[in-house]
Nucleic acid binder design. Sequence first.
RNA 1: GCGGGUGUAGCUCAUCUGGUUAGAGCGCCGGGUUGUGGUUCCGGAGGUAGUGGGUUCGAUCCCCAUCACUCGCCCCA
Length: 425
Amino acid sequence: MSLSTQPYKGARDFYPEDKRIQKYMFAVLRRVVEKYGYQEYDAPILEPLDLYTAKSGEEIVNEQTYQFEDRGGRQVVIRPEMTPTVSRMVAGKRQELAYPARWYSIPNLWRYERPQRGRLREHWQLNVDVFGIDNVSAELEMIQIADSILKEYGAVTDTYQIRLNSRKLVDSVLSGYFKLDKRVVRDLVKLIDRMNKLPADKFKQQLKDLVGTNAPQITKLLQISDITELPEELKELSSVKELVNVLDSLQKIGIDNAVFDISLMRGFDYYTDIVFEVFDTSPTNNRSMFGGGRFDGLVGLFGVEPIPTVGFGMGDVTLQNFLETNKLLPDIAPETDVAVCVIGDNYIRAQEVVSELRDSGVNVSVDSTGRKIDKQIKNADKQGLKYVIFIGDSELEQKKYGLKDLTTGTSQVLSVQQIIKALSK
RNA sequence: GCGGGUGUAGCUCAUCUGGUUAGAGCGCCGGGUUGUGGUUCCGGAGGUAGUGGGUUCGAUCCCCAUCACUCGCCCCA
């Protein structure tokens, strides 16, 4: 029986060509987020179990996380999300942080479930959070960042859609306006969340079972596509006014693909107010690429005064699907700039030239195999390198070396300094 | 956790309703005389058909189990 070469179920190996793509994707994320004044943090991949049981649903923690008992008898979880961790960190230094605190991270997260398109067991997720802002400028900034990220990749606005809703609004409507029982509200929220996945008649039936005579009115409400279509009495709610404010502001700063979606719920209980998601509009990736919202209560779970927080997360798997579908991933060159073909027994003598190149910031790999030149060139080409340099007896004597561009097939004979110049542009 | 699909060479796939030594393209390796790849020509290696069991004179093909991949459901961080 031989060992399998496959990576663990639902997790990916990153061969150099894959890692290059990831590096590119993350570089864009970091660049944009840092432009907005966010600072990077990190934390351990392991957390104590009760960090999650304190605030998430039982099922998620018990059935969808990797847990174990460590040698000291502690219940440990491999982090399935970053939000509890960052809340923990902020709570821990609550007194000494400068607010608003703008933080980001790109952690790898694990969840135990069946892999499918856009959803693996291990993924990386950009987490962007701002702590200490209690007005909608924070929500606005989050959406602006999300939008900037996609634009930085070269995405055009009709390939994605930003959807907004408000937990407060939904709550006011269902418990206030329709006077529904708390338990009914909770079930209804879950049902609405699945609205677009259920067949229309099935949804209708379940809705009727849940809310009885209110069904026609709720159905009507769910069909609203623009926030101005809400009944007049609801428009007076502060939650509605805030949403209108955000939507208007987005228009003003040039983001015109944001819409109100009263059916948008998001799975987590910890959201307290405005929530948003960015959807990939291509039919092959019918998923939200990222989502977030306001969760003012989390930091307070650690026994300190609560801090208003808005944040969002964005997974690398759905993002990569989006980028691939829209052909937004460039060809990414390897880290190595040039391969040196050593001709004859000159490996040691070539070192001086190689060092000079490296000292000038050129990434150089040296073929020390001693095999024929055509093999050496072929190998460099296969690795995706753009240049090779030939170093043999005559070159070392004349201190001039052949520089060959493998993409064009042309070559020049140059001094080391000239090579450095040629490679630096 | 539940359901559908798939599993033949490194990769993409053939093997026509079960029938003798399972094929192709690409890739890989070697060569076309000694210091320049990608084209072309010649040659070559490589598969116990995911794994285990069953039916059959005979199984890549049918049945069961199992594993993996994949799509969807549940759930969604």
